[in-house]
């Protein structure tokens, strides 16, 4: 299709607009994290850039300083009252362990299970697929009570391993279905050609088919990681001393008021690992998401 000059311009403008709409909250959050409390809530209106940037919010959440220490250091007594419970370093470490662990476990299981579902014809295969799909319909809240009991008896409550297992449980159905669609795009002829070339089932999987769907693996991993990274409900119920990021952030909303500066600082920091992760797999991800590039 031939585009006119103005059609092209219009499309560019629309693209910028959409990106702008999606990026603005992120930008605003990051901006807020550098504001002193007085600039976050100003009774005279919205503060854009006319504030004195501060690292206090990061010093408290990321370096574990209490406000009292900071106030003494700077000789400024404004906003004293923060406690060491705002220190979020352990939270980030725990969240990373849980998210990376759950992603690795999910991808490992999904990559194997979906290969079998895509390639092998066994009795009850379709029913099995439907069952997997049905697991996806189930809201996590529906299983929370039995899971709490089971975890209690297995001593998995308040452990990182417990969170890894439960996140894997929730992610596995969609990961399997997603990976299966990637495998389905690789013609079975490729497996057969490799079989004739002398490869065993495992060699076919490991040396031929898996490398051909690495874009799909990347896409699946990103999906799992983001889910674990942002999962709230299950970690709230299953842990109390281990606090993952979303749960930790809610503790900043206290009976005496919300610490918006800390929330913004932690929220901004939380974006970074996802960002790095997506950056790492970006090339694969784009190929994985633009289906069909693997074909032929």
């Amino acid at each position: 299709m031939q585009e006119t000059f103005w059609q092209k311009r219009l499309r560019d403008v629309a693209a910028v607009l959409v990106v702008g709409i999606f990026m603005f909250p992120l930008f605003w959050w990051a901006l807020t994290s550098f504001k002193p409390t007085s600039a976050i809530f100003d009774k005279d209106g919205i503060v854009w850039f006319n504030f004195k940037p501060t690292l206090v919010n990061y010093q408290v959440t990321m370096l574990g300083k209490s406000r009292a220490e900071l106030a003494i250091e700077s000789g400024n007594t404004f906003g004293v009252g923060g406690a060491s419970s705002y220190d979020s370093r352990q939270t980030i470490i725990d969240s990373l362990i849980v998210a990376v662990g759950a992603t690795a476990l999910t991808v490992l299981l999904a990559v194997l299970a979906s290969y079998a579902l895509s390639r092998m014809r066994f009795y009850g295969r379709q029913a099995y697929l439907n069952w997997i799909l049905s697991q996806r319909f189930m809201p996590p809240i529906a299983i929370i009570v039995p899971v709490v009991f089971m975890f209690h008896y297995m001593s998995l409550l308040d452990t990182r391993l417990g969170l890894i297992i439960v996140d894997t449980l929730i992610n596995l159905p969609i990961a399997v279905l997603l990976m299966k669609s990637f495998y389905d795009d690789v013609p079975v002829d490729v497996d057969e050609a490799a079989m004739i070339d002398g490869a065993s089932r495992l060699q076919i999987f490991w040396r031929v088919v898996l490398p051909m769907v690495k874009g799909g693996v990347a896409a699946t991993a990103v999906l799992c990681f983001i889910f674990s990274w942002t999962e709230f409900l299950l970690s709230l119920f299953l842990t109390n001393s281990i606090r993952t990021l979303p749960v930790k952030i809610t503790t900043f909303v206290t009976s005496t008021g919300s610490e918006w500066g800390f929330i913004a600082a932690l929220g901004t920091t939380a974006v970074i690992p996802s960002f790095i992760f997506i950056l790492l797999v970006q090339k694969q991800l784009v190929r994985g998401l633009t289906l069909g590039s693997l074909k032929e």
């Binding site: 002829d189 490729v190 057969e192 050609a193 490799a194 079989m195 004739i196 002398g198 051909m212 693997l294």
Partner: peptide, 17 residues
């Protein structure tokens, strides 16, 4: 198949992409 000493060429080539 691998023990039959045959080679096969497929319609869609089935190359290792």
């Amino acid at each position: 198949p691998k023990d039959r000493n045959i080679a096969m060429v497929f319609q869609n080539y089935a190359l290792y992409a």
